[in-house]
């Protein structure tokens, strides 16, 4: 075990997202929320973090509809990708399908 570990690594963030639950990190130093997770608080760089469940609510700040997709994802086209400002503050990039799932389940 390393002496400095991720509070919330991709594996657990992603497993939670698959259950339509969006996790973030609340900073005990500055009070801000980081999502998607990082090793330290995005706002203040502090490492004093708690995992928190986010509301899944927010505002779509921008989007694109992609007709040309990466190899292996052709059947998904057109893909609607959105950038969302979560009500807790962070911005995240999500597929529209995940956005809908979050809103239905939370």
């Amino acid at each position: 075990m390393s002496t400095f570990e991720y509070k919330l690594a991709f594996k657990d963030y992603n497993a939670s997202l698959r259950k339509n639950k969006l996790l973030g990190l609340s900073c005990k130093d500055c009070g801000k929320v980081t999502c998607p997770p990082k090793l330290v608080c995005h706002e203040c760089g502090g490492a004093n973090l708690d995992i928190s469940t986010l509301s899944g609510k927010g505002k779509i700040v921008t989007f694109t509809v992609s007709y040309v997709t990466a190899q292996g994802r052709e059947v998904e086209a057109p893909i609607l990708v959105v950038m969302v400002e979560l009500e807790e503050g962070p911005w995240v990039i999500l597929s529209a399908l995940i956005l809908i799932a979050l809103r239905w389940n939370l």
Partner: peptide
């Protein structure tokens, strides 16, 4: 891990911008 799974491509990023 945190952007590509959404379907984001490089042109897509500039479409959003």
């Amino acid at each position: 891990h945190y952007e590509y799974p959404s379907g984001l491509t490089f042109p897509g990023a500039f479409g959003m911008l």
